[in-house]
Design a protein around this nucleic acid. Structure first.
Lengths: 216, 216, 216, 216
DNA sequence: AATGAATGAGTTTTCATTCAT
DNA sequence: GATGAATGAAAACTCATTCAT
């Protein structure tokens, strides 16, 4: 699936790319504060540092901004994740590291994740599949890491369990962002990583020895 | 925390309650399809079966409708959950039953859950706490069930693990609603319940024997 | 010119009269505070002590209330004035007394006068003449008193001066009501009466001796 | 007291000024015919010659239009008055000229005066003081002219009389506008000026010789 | 390529008036 | 005669989008 094209009147690709970055940066902040619907195109233009007329030289509709933002965020997350996975060795320890890394990324990109998570549903039927596709690719990455563990004989678990586990990891990562109002009161990021790893991996390795002592 | 009052011009309480139910029912459908922001008050009135003027006899602002909808859904879910938990025996089997029951409720109320999940963030700072409070109460119910297992000596697990586990259960319930686009393609509800139980409980009881054979 | 009829569904004249008095009393207060346009019929009904449905048993349109209020106020002022004038002796002293009395009435009925003064223009073309007619009748009363002075030989002044003088007296009476924001800061009612009398009568009797010493 | 700022989205000051003049011109006509409350913003926009959207580029609320109108009218009257007063010599003849001039202005600006006079009370608590301030300044101008006469020894009259006289002059000017329905039937502007001058100045100079023969 | 003034369809909300009970 | 729920036309205001400069 190719990237969905967003039409620009301006031809200079470099310029288009630059302007869109300004746009995305400004929009993320606004969406974070007021949501997509309560943000006006004028505000986006202003936050991006140019006029409303100029904004419309680089997009066709307000929705395009949302798509661009979502697309950008997913790319960012995916890129970071990919870097990590390329050197993954397929051991349970590596899986744990991957989880920790992913949660860390979600923490770093808190605002972006929150925006994306809350506003994807505002995308048109038209744009949504492109974004969901990307999400599936990321879930798939986790599946691969887990599968590698299985292939290494370190883990005995069904295909369906693998896929669900991958979804769980992904959602728990997002969860750290979208449930901060609750989780932050109880856990630090480090604790959250540790505890979720316990629960995720405990189920796989049958330790059954979860207890408070495993925490600092 | 008392319920947040939504002002009605009409005095007859019975009538208010009836009209609001019509309203909620209509609104849920619309919100599900187009989201809160893209739904107009006129559409809500029409879907509820009365005129725009009448709508405003029962609410003050469009936001009130959203609050009423969210409040109703949480109450519904909570009520159903409460019924189940009252007769919960505090054994691991009972915990599994509770999870299954909760996931079933989330499946029954799919549309409502989706709406709530996507639109809570559109509530004003004013109304949000009332809804989040309710969410926390539900999470707390799960904590209680798990704690009862621990107290029964059937389970050895830290306080912090308990709370996180409760959150996970809650989110995994919602997940069945808001990620249907992905999960439905792979699992039936029964499978989803079974697999998630495996993962959740496996971590607690150290079976470590997860495999495809445990599935039909 | 007969009184303009305001239609009532209710037949019992006594009741109609009673209900309308309640209505007028309530409405004057509301109009005073928020003006005719910003006052709703519901508020009028409530202030009158009955329901919106009942209100409409005694009037046909919101405008009727305004007309009723204006009509009532003019009648009140006119009645009071008439009482005084019947015993007027036609001397310059009597004229001064009349002025003092009129200003006193305008002070007593401050709120009503303000309302009337500000809202007459909101009457329909249809109702306005009835009210203006009444105003002219009051101006005419002043003309009569002045004319009597002339006929008594106490005063030598043209017909046109008389009529203008009458208008001036009337407007200066109203002025005490509608310019309170300015006049109250400088004068007490007594001072205002005294000073205006000086200016009005000075012109007629050629005293030319206005000075601060004539004031306490 | 600085001018109360009315916010405009458009930056070009020249344009703002031009558009607002169109707006004021259109609004005065509408307000004159139907009053502020019965005039819609769409009508104002149309009368001004642009769209409703454009109207709101130059104001924030409908009330702003009223303020702009009132402010404009007061400025206009005040400016004209100021021009006359600068060359005022402080003699009774000059005072008479000033009065004649002021009444003439009020006649020229009949419509505007009527609007202002009837609608000031519709201004918010917020804007009212700015307008009343201007009114007081105008009254003060008259005080100055009268005071100059006193200082020249041409007139012996108390401070309080001066202030009241100034108010009377101002109100009688307005009166020519807001009581035209009655006064126009009896007097031409010239007569009105002549007669009011007789009454105003007669009181000051003790001629006491008012009679019909002084009129043409 | 950039600007920002102009547009008007569309939105929420109000409120005078009616009419069944 | 009294009530108050229902109605819907109309109002103020917003904002995505266009286009002349």
């Amino acid at each position: 699936m190719k990237k969905r094209e967003v039409h620009a009147s301006v031809k200079d690709e470099k310029l288009v790319s630059m302007r869109r970055n300004q746009m995305i940066k400004g929009a993320v902040n606004l969406f974070k504060e007021k949501g997509f619907h309560r943000t006006t195109t004028r505000e986006i233009a202003k936050a991006a540092g140019f006029s409303i007329g100029t904004l419309y030289e680089y997009i066709r509709t307000k929705e395009d901004v949302l798509y661009l933002v979502c697309d950008f965020i997913y790319d960012e997350v995916k890129d970071r994740l990919q870097n990590d996975l390329e050197q993954n060795s397929g051991t349970p320890e590596a899986l744990k590291t991957t989880i920790a890394y992913f949660f860390q990324v979600m923490d770093d990109m808190q605002d972006e994740v929150l925006v994306m998570y809350q506003e994807v549903k505002s995308l048109t039927k038209d744009a949504l599949p492109y974004v969901l596709k990307k999400e599936m690719e990321m879930v798939h990455m986790f599946e691969l890491v887990i599968t590698r563990c299985v292939e290494n004989g370190k883990l005995n678990i069904s295909e369906k369990h693998i896929r669900l586990l991958a979804h769980n990891i992904f959602v728990q990562g997002q969860m750290w962002g979208f449930r901060r109002w609750a989780l932050r009161k109880i856990y630090t990021l480090e604790e959250y990583i540790e505890l979720q790893s316990d629960l995720l991996l405990g189920s796989l390795y049958g330790k059954g020895n979860l207890n408070a002592t495993s925490l600092p």
